[in-house]
Design a protein around this nucleic acid. Structure first.
Lengths: 228, 228
DNA sequence: CAAAATAGAGAGCACTGCTCTTGACTCCGG
DNA sequence: CCGGAGTCAAGAGCAGTGCTCTCTATTTTG
């Protein structure tokens, strides 16, 4: 077995190195990752890469999953670092962590939340990691309701919307009122609109003080969801 | 002059046809537009295209500008079709028009609001057309304040944010209070987060009733900006 | 009517993802 | 311990890409 596992170990290291090099290329050259360039950087010929990843899309998928995990880690760590009772502080911490990670890894962020690559369909493996960030953000609301520190709004929801949200709540946030979930999703949506606008240069000409603007915008949504 | 203008006319028609074919390719094949494919569809050789567009990026820029104009037209028409005093009706009309246009032209929407193409920087010509949609949406707030039908919130803004917003208001929305502008931009941001999530498949598994969800989400932001 | 400008074709360069074959190396069971 | 099996990297090659350059018609213009 040790003989076999030394091969397996080398192979695993190889895969890790390919991913690392690919991530570096992603960061410097943008989203159009070139397999051949990665191979060149590793002193291999391009066809050798196919021993480890059956196609370029599979490499991209691996990078996407790792990026989701990295973002999820960053967001959850930020949340965990704040006193559980300080709901507003947690909200801001999560939002800021997401933006900070995005600014530090723009190409990977674009991979996750930018326009989908034409021929590429995200495989199922990405679904769970993709849920971690919103789970963390909306988990704050769940905690707030459970602690009686958020009074759920009494928005009247159209029946189909209420049903959809009830389904989501049942699966992911048991006990979270539908109307509050709706507001939370508005905050979640606005957060990624904000980050995208920021990252994709849409605020460049008009908003010089990006950090303060971001905080104020997320504070508006914190108000909307009723954080004390 | 007529002799010269017949050539100019043919040339203009040629440019239009190239753009039309390119738009068709964009719609069917996604964002990775191939010059050679466009040339093939027109019965030309690829190098002939370069008589009309100096590079692929210039073709893309032309398409982007036209797309902004089309979105701007759709949004402004939707706004104009509603009674000026019906602020909330106008808000919903504008939001729906933006989403409807995006759903009808997903590839062009991705070109405008998706991740930026790596080597490509949007030229200045795109700035003005790009401003039309947010101008329309936030114009509703300006009208509401002017008519005394919106009472501006008294959020306290950090000084740098207030200054940035004052600058924007001075240039584009004279008389619009900074705090209200901030909330309006939150609505604008959330709108495009919503559309992006919808279009890029992020809501696929969780929200079956997309239309109703969209209306409710934009209604939340209408509340936030204080529409009666 | 000749000169100048323009349109299109064709070849070619450097690049891409991907496949297939070929030769070398490592591992494992008899 | 040694021979078959599995694994790995290399190289050639295919079809595609954006783009440039040259050459030949055609049209416009002085």
């Amino acid at each position: 077995m040790p003989a076999s596992s030394i091969r397996a170990r080398v192979r695993a290291e190889m895969i890790d190195e390919i991913k690392a090099v690919a991530r570096r290329h992603l960061a410097s050259d943008g989203a159009d990752l070139s397999l051949r360039a990665v191979a060149r950087d590793m002193g291999m010929v391009s066809s050798a890469i196919y021993r480890y990843f059956p196609s370029r899309d599979d490499l991209l998928t691996a990078l996407i999953i790792e990026a989701y995990q990295a973002l999820g880690d960053a967001v959850e760590a930020a949340d965990a670092a704040v006193d559980r009772a300080d709901l507003r502080g947690r909200w801001h911490a999560v939002c800021r962590a997401a933006r900070t990670w995005a600014l530090a890894h723009p190409a990977e962020y674009a991979l996750l939340y930018g326009s989908p690559v034409p021929g590429y369909a995200a495989p199922v493996d990405t679904v769970l990691p993709a849920q971690r960030p919103p789970l963390t953000l909306l988990g704050i609301l769940r905690d707030g309701v459970a602690a009686g520190r958020i009074t759920p709004p009494d928005d009247d929801l159209p029946e189909p919307v209420r049903a959809d949200l009830a389904e989501i709540a049942a699966g992911l946030f048991p006990g979270l009122p539908e109307a509050l979930l709706a507001r939370g999703m508005a905050g979640w949506t606005q957060l990624f609109g904000l980050i995208s606008f920021d990252l994709f240069g849409r605020l460049d000409p008009v908003v010089p003080h990006r950090d303060a603007y971001f905080d104020h915008q997320t504070a508006l949504m914190a108000d909307l969801v009723g954080l004390p």
